[in-house]
């Protein structure tokens, strides 16, 4: 859909056509007579609701909207960690919300200042007391890779319609990417490719309001990296990549285990337990796609924006893997389940 700067709203702009009743949606408010914009944004009408797509602004966790975010541990306490979630409010990660059995006062054995985690917003209180959780598959401590920070309001642009932008970025750069809703991207791959990826993300940010963004970015990626291997639009072709991803990660993990200095005599906490689903993903992909194409990790129900119906994050594939290839993963997963079970018994 083409947009011009005529669609840019300024705080105070009356959004409804004169005399017409509308409902105030995101980025607008009802002043008693009209629906009025309260941010700089793009007009995006949805039925009777007038919504605005924000052009800026910080990430604020919303209640009942369990965003997946990338957090950085900033403090440790006997029974919880403090997590910076790139927001006006810091979050807390309680030991009961992590997949390990952490003894009181032993939090530093598992996560320490500066550690980066993929977490999920589990609760946002009245006074913006935010809790995050690691108790779900895919949520874990990040061990390698690179963090790219961007404006949280542009995150849906990086994901694209049904994850199109994201899968394009992955195909061209051959990187593993995780997009946190709080404006942090975790990427892992070749250094040269990460640099290109970072530049691509910057471009997406700068041109997010322009029509033809995907074409523009694709041209940029092509000029820097050449053609991608295989057609990224067809999920089947990515299965090989996913298998590589999985192998990479298993190797990573093995390396890490060998040089893990942290825990001495302690029973080894399952450091990176949340291997990607071996079974079916819990949220099936959009209807348009055949069921076998289950996209890896559905992240959020997009805010009311038509460009991001199904933001999709993928780290790893799901189905059709040879059993021996993933047996280790399965083992680790079952370990995790045990731990969780124990804790629930408490």
């Amino acid at each position: 859909m083409s947009r011009s700067n005529k669609d840019i709203t300024v705080p105070g702009t009356i959004m409804n056509p004169p005399g017409e009743k509308m409902q105030a949606g995101n980025g607008t408010f009802w002043n008693g007579q009209d629906v009025v914009a309260n941010i700089v944004g793009l007009r995006n009408q949805r039925g009777a609701y007038m919504n605005l797509i924000p052009m800026g602004g910080r990430y604020v966790p919303q209640p009942r909207k369990n965003d997946l975010i990338i957090g950085i541990i900033t403090d440790t306490a006997p029974s919880y960690w403090t997590v910076d979630i790139n927001s006006p409010y810091t979050a807390m990660l309680h030991v009961n919300d992590c997949p390990w059995k952490v003894d009181f006062g032993e939090t530093v054995r598992y996560l320490n200042n500066g550690d980066v985690i993929i977490a999920k917003i589990s609760e946002v209180g009245e006074l913006r007391k935010v809790y995050v959780s690691l108790k779900e598959k895919g949520l874990r401590r990040l061990e390698s890779g690179h963090i790219i920070t961007m404006s949280p309001s542009k995150v849906p642009r990086v994901i694209g319609k049904k994850g199109s932008m994201l899968s394009m970025l992955k195909a061209y750069t051959n990187c593993r990417i995780f997009v946190g809703q709080n404006g942090r991207l975790w990427v892992d791959g070749k250094h040269e490719n990460i640099l290109v990826l970072e530049e691509a993300v910057n471009r997406i940010e700068a041109m997010s309001h322009m029509p033809g963004l995907t074409t523009e970015i694709e041209a940029f990626l092509k000029s820097r990296l050449g053609e991608p291997s295989g057609d990224y639009r067809e999920h089947d072709d990515r299965r090989g990549d996913r298998r590589d991803d999985r192998r990479d990660r298993r190797d990573d993990r093995r390396d890490r285990r060998d040089e893990r200095p942290r825990e001495e005599a302690k029973p080894e906490p399952v450091e990176e337990p949340k291997e990607e689903p071996v079974e079916e993903t819990d949220e099936p992909a959009p209807v348009e796609e055949p069921a076998a194409e289950t996209v890896e990790d559905t992240v959020e129900e997009a805010p009311a924006e038509e460009t991001t119906e199904e933001p999709v994050i993928s780290i790893v594939g799901a189905d059709g893997e040879p059993a021996d290839d993933i047996s280790e993963d399965i083992k680790e997963e079952s370990e995790v389940k045990e731990v969780i079970f124990e804790e629930e018994g408490d």
């Binding site: 300024v10 705080p11 105070g12 980025g27 408010f29 002043n31 009025v36 309260n38 941010i39 700089v40 924000p54 052009m55 800026g56 602004g57 910080r58 309001s153």
Partner: peptide, 11 residues
């Protein structure tokens, strides 16, 4: 403030 995306009634 408008540039920073702060919600405001008006400028």
């Amino acid at each position: 403030m408008a540039d920073a995306g702060i919600p405001m009634r008006d400028i």
